[in-house]
């Protein structure tokens, strides 16, 4: 028994290692979990229709993806990385140092972050300031001094809002959605308060801490990375609000409704034209040095940037992607398909 096991193990290992060629024939994609659903949809269609192998898409988070992507050039390193924010200057420099000189940046579209509650409850109309006052760790009191957030109900925040307990289910700090929420909603809200806005000039560190701090007294509940879970919990608790990506709102419109923010409801149109305030652009980056070595990269980019994929009627729209406006889409597609390298981001 033992001998046969060892023998088969050695044989199998030897067999599989020898077939492992030095070259790689599948595209490797890493990066943001926000872009993951779109990237995988394109990868699958690409594999099914174009005659190449289906690319491997890993969900590593934007930062983790950048780290892998900029680690070097060669078959051991990924060809494409997805990002829910622009590449940072420091990341670009890392790429340059590692030899990945030419990188093509492709802006795919927008991702909205919805603040939603159960259909059984009335739709809320929030402002960014309301969101900040409801969820911040410290808020200024009447005299301008920072005190731990005293607001217990939405009525405490804004007298127009219902007298319901503040109970918000949202992603934990490790999530990209949380980062974006803090950056877009919380910072937007805190800058609408003059005392805090003034702080930005005098004490930037303090300003950042105040704007980015989310309360830890139970009003904000970290519900894990799983947006489906948040939707399920909202359906069973009509007092709670949840924070998650627009695609989950789109798939669950029978159970939950998005709150209006600054009077704008999260819909495809409002996120696309930029009037919905809590939305961000999403990207992917291509390592030009790999084009030609790894088969199919050019065709993959072409598939991603074709209107049947990322257009307003395309299959990515069904997955919740919000397309770029027509003119921008055309120009990005053109430069992406020509693999024009990006310049250093600011």
């Amino acid at each position: 028994m033992n001998k046969t096991l060892i023998a088969t193990a050695v044989l199998l290992a030897a067999g599989s290692l020898s077939t492992q060629a030095m070259a790689r024939d599948t595209i490797n994609i890493v990066g943001s979990s926000t872009v993951f659903p779109f990237s995988t949809a394109v990868a699958e269609t690409f594999g099914r229709t174009m005659g190449f192998k289906t690319p491997k898409v890993e969900s590593t988070g934007t930062g983790g993806g950048m780290k892998l992507f900029c680690a070097g050039v060669g078959v051991d390193h990924p060809d494409i990385t997805n990002a829910s924010r622009r590449m940072k200057a420091s990341e670009f420099e890392n790429c340059q140092k590692a030899g990945a000189k030419e990188i093509t940046e492709v802006k795919i579209g927008f991702d909205g972050i919805a603040i939603a509650n159960s259909k059984k409850a009335p739709q809320l109309d929030l402002t960014l300031k309301d969101i900040f006052l409801a969820l911040a760790k410290d808020v200024p009191d009447a005299s301008g001094k920072f005190v731990p957030n005293p607001n217990k109900t939405w009525k405490d925040v804004n007298s127009d809002l219902p007298d319901a307990k503040i109970e918000v289910l949202g992603p934990p700090p490790t999530s990209g959605t949380r980062d974006a929420f803090v950056e877009l909603a919380m910072e937007g809200g805190c800058n609408s308060i003059p005392e805090i806005k003034a702080l930005k000039k005098s004490d930037e560190k303090m300003h950042k801490a105040v704007c980015g701090g989310i309360r830890e007294d139970g009003a904000y509940i970290e519900a894990g990375e799983n947006d489906n879970l948040i939707v399920q919990k909202l359906a069973s608790n009509k007092n709670a609000l949840g924070i998650f990506g627009y695609s989950f709102l789109d798939q669950n419109t029978d159970k939950v409704q998005g709150s209006k923010i600054d009077g704008v409801e999260p819909t495809y149109e409002t996120i696309s034209d930029g009037s919905y305030p809590v939305s961000r652009s999403i990207y992917f980056y291509v390592k030009n040095a790999h084009v030609g070595t790894i088969p199919g990269i050019k065709q993959f980019v072409a598939e991603f940037t074709s209107d049947k994929a990322w257009g307003p009627e395309g299959y990515l729209a069904d997955k919740g992607l919000i397309s770029l406006p027509d003119a921008e889409r055309a120009s990005v597609a053109k430069s992406a398909q020509a693999l024009e390298p990006m310049s250093k981001p600011e």
């Binding site: 199998l12 290992a13 599989s16 290692l17 077939t19 492992q20 599948t26 993951f36 990237s39 995988t40 990868a43 699958e44 594999g47 192998k53 289906t54 491997k56 898409v57 890993e58 969900s59 590593t60």
Partner: peptide, 17 residues
Amino acid sequence: IGMIAFIVDVPGGFTDP
């Protein structure tokens, strides 16, 4: 080690994703 990945093709060996 990169197993959280979207892989459509059914792996046929020890070194396939």
